[in-house]
Design a protein around this nucleic acid. Sequence first.
DNA 1: CGGAGTAAAAGGCACTT
DNA 2: AAGTGACTTTTACTCCG
Length: 311
Amino acid sequence: MSSTDIKTVNLEKGCPNCEGTYYVRDYKLSRLICRGCGKVLEKDIKDMGPEWREYSQEEKNRRSRSGPPITEVIHDRGLSPTISQKNRDAKGNALSPDSRYRMYRLRKRNKSAKITDQKDRNLSTAFSEINRMSSQLGLPRSIREIASRIYRKAIEEDLIRGHSIEGISSAALYLACRTTETPRALKEIANVSYAKKRKIGRGYRYLSRELGIDLVPRNHIRFVTRFGRELRLSTDTITKAIDLVKRAREEKMVSGKSPLSIAAAVLYIAARSNGEARTQAEIAGRTFITAVTLRNRYEELVEDLELDLGS
DNA sequence: CGGAGTAAAAGGCACTT
DNA sequence: AAGTGACTTTTACTCCG
């Protein structure tokens, strides 16, 4: 599936199902899909206005032949040419010792031109870290690019001084998840980062403050759908869990509580009352919280929403 | 083992000095 | 920038069926 078939877009109005605002346009199937809950929101998106058009085959070819895509992920945006390490000419023949030496000089010069100063070195380290962590977490390219953009901006604003590259790149990655409403726990990032969770936590707040990046409150429902799927719960159970979240929100029971623990609690209740019970340890592990917190949250919900678990 | 509960420590947040 | 206080979460442990 090529990148022109799938595009992540941010629309003004939220998804009626989960309230998310980020959607995926799948041009191959001509559908608009909510990224939060997977609901198909529009069937025939070819009618969706001028921001999208179908490229002719010719245009597609031209675009794909014009070199590597310009991305944020490579520190020089992929524009500087590289010189092959192999001592071969274009036909694959070995080079004479004379031209070998010339190639050596050329490589050396190209290299030093590529990474000119500390700033670029810093950027390429950070970007490779962002890439590494994203791969381990299975985060899409779009998020890596947003994270890289945030990091680049942080360097330009001179915010890195006194902070570790590790901490800030992890923080940028977490921020990218937050701004795209991708449900990830800070702990997950910390698990694949060389930086400590606490540093990442401080780092992302620091960046959002200094760069003026708005932190919208996390949507519990996104976590419910994600964890629900990972726990292999039926769609019916997940829907029940989402209803519980909505009720809890109406009763003002969620503010100040981690969306992770709310998600864990409603999933536990819904699963149990639907005969798909999961153990507290299983849910707690999946949702990156402890069983104690899960108990506290779910008991509170059962009490305040007057639920009956029937056992 | 799964669930319930507890005390103490740690962490995050709003607010002040 | 450090301090305070109310609050949530974690840690570590015990007890029960």
